[in-house]
């Protein structure tokens, strides 16, 4: 009975959810990643792009000690950047530690993937900071 009511209310209030057309490369990238996941391609303004994050593309190199160390160092630097803005995420340092542990054990592919995730998290934190500067006021009641 309750379910039926909820269903009816939803049917009234929501027609099928549709997706708004992307309005920038960034938006097109995110929408395609959101719909299809990684490892896909999409076309934006006549050109073909991958749905992989730049950090995932960076990690797709030969799995060796030097490459793992380089990406870990780059993830650390990015995380230091977001920490300065006071927008560091909770898990990033742990992910970097796990990447270092994997590299120490010779698991370079795993280390590269973890470092890519940490670097991505740091970049998203920076993006979140800049977004907030421009938009935090939108949730303040009048």
């Amino acid at each position: 009975m309750i379910r039926k009511t909820i269903f009816a209310a939803l049917a009234l209030s929501l027609s099928a959810t549709v997706v708004a057309a992307p309005d920038s490369y960034q938006d097109a990238f995110e929408l395609n990643r959101a719909m299809y996941g990684k490892g896909h391609t999409f076309v934006w303004q006549g050109k073909e792009y991958s749905t992989d994050h730049p950090e995932e593309i960076e990690a797709a190199v030969e799995a060796n000690a030097a490459n793992a160390a380089a990406l870990i160092a780059s993830a650390k630097a990015k995380n230091a950047e977001v920490a300065k803005l006071n927008f560091e995420w909770k898990l990033t340092r742990d992910i970097i530690k796990k990447a270092e542990a994997a590299a120490a054990k010779g698991e370079f592919r795993k280390a590269l993937n973890l470092a890519a995730q940490a670097k991505y998290h740091a970049r998203m934190g920076i993006e979140q900071y800049h977004y907030a500067q421009a938009n935090w006021h939108l949730s303040v009641p009048e």
Partner: peptide, 14 residues
């Protein structure tokens, strides 16, 4: 108070 933050993107106000 009103700024979304963290991996979960939550503000206090949320």
């Amino acid at each position: 108070y009103y700024t979304k933050r963290g991996q979960l993107n939550l503000s206090c106000a949320n």
